[in-house]
Amino acid sequence: MDQQRICFIGAGNMTRSIISGLIHSGYPAQLIQATNPSQGKLTALEADFGIQVSLDNLSAAQQADVIVLSVKPQIMQQVCETLRSLSLTNKLVITIAAGIHSSRYTEYFQQPINLIRAMPNTPMQLGVGMTGLFAPFCLNLQHKMVCERLFSSGGEIVWLDDEAEINQVIGLAGSAPAYFFLFMESMIAAGTDMGMDAAKARSLVQQAALGAAMMAKQNPQLSLRELRENVTSKGGTTAQAISTFEDADLRGLVKKAIENCVNRAEEMAKTL
C-alpha cells in the first residue's frame, strides 16, 4: 500500500480523522490528496498534515489508485456522476457514506467498480477508531489488503458478512462516541450542579471513562458484568447509583436509542 495514491473526495471531519490516522502511522503525505468544493477545510488539512489538496474532483480522482468517497449521502449521486468519465477498472472505490446500498454506486458510476463500504468513527484520528468493512462484490485480495491497511492505521477493523450489518456498525460504533460524550456531559453537569469546578469535574470524568474502556479492552476474559460487579459493593455508593440507572430502565433506553439509529440508516437507504 506504500505506493498507493489515495484521494479523499470531501474534506469533512471523517476525512480529517482518517488522514490523521494515516499520517500518524507513517503513511507518506505526498501520496494523499483531498478535494472539496471550498478552500477553507483544504487549507487546514494541507497545513496540518502536508497533504496535496485540490478543488477538482475529477483530476484528483484520475491520479489516484484509491478513491475515498467522503461526502454527505444527499450529494453522493451528484459527486459520483462527475466521475463517470473515469475508467475505474483498476481503481479501488471506498465509500464511508451511511444509508446508500452498494448497488446504487454501480448506477451512479454506470460501470462496474471495485467497491468497499466502510463505516469508521472519529477516534481514528487518535489511532483508536473502529471501522466496519463490507465488500459487496468479488474483490481481489490486494484491494482488501489496501483497505485493511488504510483503516487499521487508525484503529481496529472488522469485516462484515452481510451488508445490513453496516447499519448495526453505525449504531454500535460509528455514532457511539456521541453517546459516550453525552453521558460524560451529563456526569460533568451533575458534578458542577453540586458545586465542583467544571475543569475538575471534566478531568475526573474523562479519566474515569478512559480507565473503564481500557479495563474492558485489556480484560477480555472478564464479562462487562463481572467488571461492573467488581466495582460495586453490596449496599455501597456504586450500588446506589447503579440501582438508580436500573430503576430508570437505562438498558431499555440504550436499546431504543441504538434501534432508532439503525432504523434511521435503513430509512435513508430507501430514499437515496
Score class of each variant (00 low, 15 high):
residue 132 G to D: 01
residue 43 T to P: 11
residue 134 F to C: 05
residue 1 M to G: 13
residue 74 Q to D: 14
residue 181 F to W: 13
residue 113 I to H: 03
residue 19 I to E: 06
residue 27 Y to F: 07
residue 224 L to R: 05
residue 166 I to G: 02
residue 97 A to R: 09
residue 149 R to E: 12
residue 131 T to C: 05
residue 27 Y to H: 04
residue 262 V to E: 10
residue 33 Q to V: 15
residue 235 G to P: 05
residue 219 N to R: 05
residue 40 G to V: 14
residue 2 D to N: 15
residue 263 N to W: 13
residue 154 G to V: 00
residue 99 G to H: 05
residue 244 T to S: 15
residue 258 I to G: 06
residue 125 Q to Y: 12
residue 151 F to C: 04
residue 234 K to D: 10
residue 175 S to H: 08
residue 239 A to C: 04
residue 188 I to F: 09
residue 9 I to W: 01
residue 185 E to Q: 13
residue 118 A to N: 02
residue 100 I to F: 08
residue 33 Q to A: 15
residue 247 D to G: 08
residue 3 Q to N: 14
residue 265 A to N: 08
residue 187 M to V: 13
residue 52 Q to G: 12
residue 264 R to E: 11
residue 102 S to Y: 06
residue 14 M to L: 10
residue 161 D to M: 12
residue 236 G to W: 03
residue 190 A to P: 06
residue 105 Y to W: 08
residue 59 S to M: 15
residue 102 S to M: 08
residue 230 N to E: 15
residue 201 A to F: 04
residue 56 D to R: 07
residue 208 A to E: 05
residue 112 P to I: 10
residue 53 V to T: 12
residue 94 I to N: 01
residue 27 Y to N: 02
residue 98 A to S: 09
residue 211 G to I: 00
residue 68 V to N: 02
residue 231 V to R: 05
residue 201 A to W: 01
residue 155 G to P: 02
residue 212 A to Y: 00
residue 261 C to A: 11
residue 73 P to Q: 04
residue 114 N to C: 08
residue 263 N to R: 12
residue 256 K to Y: 15
residue 259 E to Y: 14
residue 203 S to C: 15
residue 64 A to C: 11
residue 104 R to C: 13
residue 204 L to P: 07
residue 158 V to W: 14
residue 125 Q to C: 09
residue 194 M to K: 13
residue 57 N to F: 03
residue 119 M to Q: 04
residue 257 A to H: 10
residue 91 K to D: 08
residue 264 R to Q: 14
residue 79 V to Y: 01
residue 31 L to R: 13
residue 248 A to V: 07
residue 6 I to F: 07
residue 43 T to K: 14
residue 104 R to M: 13
residue 80 C to V: 01
residue 79 V to D: 01
residue 135 A to C: 02
residue 29 A to Q: 06
residue 64 A to T: 04
residue 240 Q to G: 08
residue 178 A to G: 07
residue 149 R to F: 07
residue 231 V to P: 06
residue 27 Y to G: 02
residue 214 M to A: 13
residue 126 L to R: 09
residue 96 I to A: 03
residue 3 Q to L: 15
residue 20 S to D: 01
residue 63 Q to F: 06
residue 15 T to F: 05
residue 113 I to N: 03
residue 44 A to Y: 13
residue 152 S to P: 04
residue 97 A to V: 12
residue 156 E to R: 12
residue 212 A to C: 00
residue 121 N to S: 02
residue 71 V to M: 09
residue 29 A to K: 05
residue 70 S to R: 08
residue 218 Q to I: 03
residue 211 G to D: 03
residue 84 R to A: 09
residue 236 G to H: 01
residue 163 E to Y: 03
residue 104 R to F: 11
residue 160 L to H: 06
residue 127 G to S: 02
residue 38 S to E: 08
residue 186 S to H: 01
residue 94 I to W: 00
residue 188 I to R: 03
residue 144 K to M: 06
residue 5 R to T: 15
residue 257 A to F: 09
residue 215 M to K: 03
residue 160 L to W: 04
